[in-house]
Design a protein around this nucleic acid. Structure first.
Lengths: 340, 340
DNA sequence: TCCTCCAATTAGACCGATTTAATTATACAC
DNA sequence: GTGTATAATTAAATCGGTCTAATTGGAGGA
């Protein structure tokens, strides 16, 4: 159990501590024969590299912080996966926190990451996050990239989906199919992604000269339970809506289940479009129309930007939007809606 | 961005480095007035505690490693959440890796965690993991707890669901409801959880003197897509099955969607039971009967056991099984199955 | 005044690697 | 044989806290 350290390998291999260090790091300064000898001694003794010690001297912990706002959302799970793969590829480790939409937890997580000396941070800010909340990251000088949500007026690297355009596109299509009474269902307000999606929705309605139902948006937790919980209220709107753009596919699932429970069949009696294109969406009955914005693209773009920053890229902050494309499926078919 | 360190605070506060360290750690040795002065100077200078440096001396990184085998599965996401909460509560950080059922990734993750000097590890071993693969953890002397899956013959702390009993219970109930031709759908073979669920299934059938369909189990990825992909094969079994126990709720969802696509209605034409009791399950149409084994219980039990080990508990390894209870819902109603 | 005791403070070794500058060994040319 | 260039190795300072053992200061007692 006692940890083996460099000096012990040095002793065993009959060289100095420096040589061992250099050899194990694969330095070209060390003769191949010596390096081999050292490596043998190391594995003989069961040596485990101590990254903590190295980091102290190095000022690089080879650790990346990932702060999610809601990782039970499958979209984020998929995104994290691609982030993780890339981090693994470059031999770093991932310090993970799910802030679960709690500002307090988020700020504590940031503090934790700073104390651990992470090389960089990927952050999806919780709702109500202000510029001031994130200023500490700039002060500390840690490279960081925001994903999925940005903070208006806060100049920082950002990668997310094209939410305004996505929502706009979906609503335009719904209108083209004959819908007029359309609502927006689900999502946590006070996040940029929600505001942007709602904004795109609104713009499409306004541009088409269609009056917004009242109320025209319904907030909820981002989950099936959230979507399901709003069905009743939506159905009470008069004149009754015929279509809904949902904040996410999970919300859409819940919403559709709720509709069915009331004998209203999505894709026949009511059009539903989601956001995310989860793998389940095309399996759903009816298959769910949705705005696809591959989480793996967002994730790999975000981590790539961060890694570039770690490599010393200090160009001005960039904003990257990943295109959202409308996948038309049966939940958006005309059915008998157009005529009603 | 130059990091502020203890010596600089010491200078500013007119005390020694030792005093600063002691004061910031809240040692009772330091006069309250001095401590206050130090704390002020520290925040004045924007000091950030360097856990890496402390860890080097301490031999405690205050870091816990979590190695998941499949965290896109919502069950594990929920479990991780409770683990995370507890880790946050005790002021530690979480080093996270999703091995995604890859033995190679898992072993690299273990190595990574050892190099980072995590205080302890929570591990859900991937399929095909052998005793030998995990021996390194014992050699290294890191406390660790297996969750959800154990390795037969490998003596280690373990927390998981009561899989044998759960499956047994569900199948008995199906039989009691009149089903005879029952199959097991989904899951990755060569994991203890799969083997146990399949084992419980088999036992119930054998004890009831019912012949197993041929084939009687169908493996798949643990996801809706996985469940959906097996529907065709299941429906080709002759005589045709009337009920399925699915490896997980996600598999059950996919399976049910596949059935419906073929005009077979779960809960009316075919009984389906899942495992996990996800929040969506009761919203499903029909609501999904399932074996509930709260992921938060598994998670908090696992982390609690680990923390006890960190506190020096060196009693023999424990095996904890969290009870699975059958939640009966419409997907398991009789419908016109019993008579067919 | 001197001594004792306790509280408060501090010096300095230590954790385990890294890395620069210095040293030693080796090869080659003349 | 000597000098020089190059390769290989190493000594030692360093990263930033921690913590024990030592020191200092002041109160109280005789």
């Amino acid at each position: 159990m006692k940890k083996v350290k460099l000096s012990e390998i040095a002793l065993a291999a009959g060289v100095s501590r420096s040589t061992v260090s250099l050899a194990l790091r694969g330095s070209p300064l060390i003769a191949k024969s010596t390096a081999e000898k050292v490596r043998e001694a190391a594995s003989e003794l069961g040596y485990v590299y101590n990254r903590t010690a190295a980091a102290l001297r190095n000022r690089r912990t080879h650790t990346i912080g990932l702060i999610e706002a809601n990782f039970k959302n499958p979209f984020f799970a998929a995104m994290s996966e691609s982030v993780e793969r890339e981090i693994e590829r470059v031999g770093k480790a991932l310090l993970f926190v799910d802030s679960a939409e709690s500002l307090e937890r988020q700020q504590k997580a940031i503090q934790l990451m700073l104390e651990h000396g992470v090389d960089g941070i990927l952050l999806c800010p919780v709702r109500h996050t202000t510029k001031e909340n994130l200023e500490i990251l700039k002060k500390a000088g840690v490279p960081f990239v925001l994903f999925s949500r940005y903070i208006p007026g806060f100049d920082a690297d950002y990668v997310g989906g094209a939410n305004v355009e996505g929502a706009y596109q979906a609503v335009c299509r719904m209108i083209q199919l004959g819908h007029k009474r359309i609502v927006f269902v689900g999502g946590e307000p006070y996040t940029s992604s929600w505001l942007d999606r709602v904004g795109g929705f609104r713009r499409a309605m306004v541009e088409a000269g269609i009056e917004l139902p009242s109320p025209w948006y319904f907030c909820s937790e981002v989950s099936a339970a959230g979507g399901s919980s709003r069905v009743e209220e939506v159905l009470e709107v008069r004149p009754m809506p015929t279509a809904a753009l949902c904040y996410s596919d999970t919300v859409a699932f819940g919403f559709m289940m709720g509709l069915e429970r009331r004998g209203i069949f999505p894709g026949r009696d009511f059009a539903v479009v989601g956001f995310d294109d989860l793998p389940e969406s095309r399996l759903w009955r009816p298959p769910l129309a949705t705005l696809a914005c591959p989480p793996t693209r967002v994730g790999s773009m975000a981590i790539q930007m961060l890694l570039e920053r770690l490599d010393g890229d200090n160009t001005p902050p960039r904003r990257v939007e990943i295109q959202s494309i409308l996948i038309e499926r049966d939940s958006l078919s005309i059915g008998n809606i157009g005529k009603s």
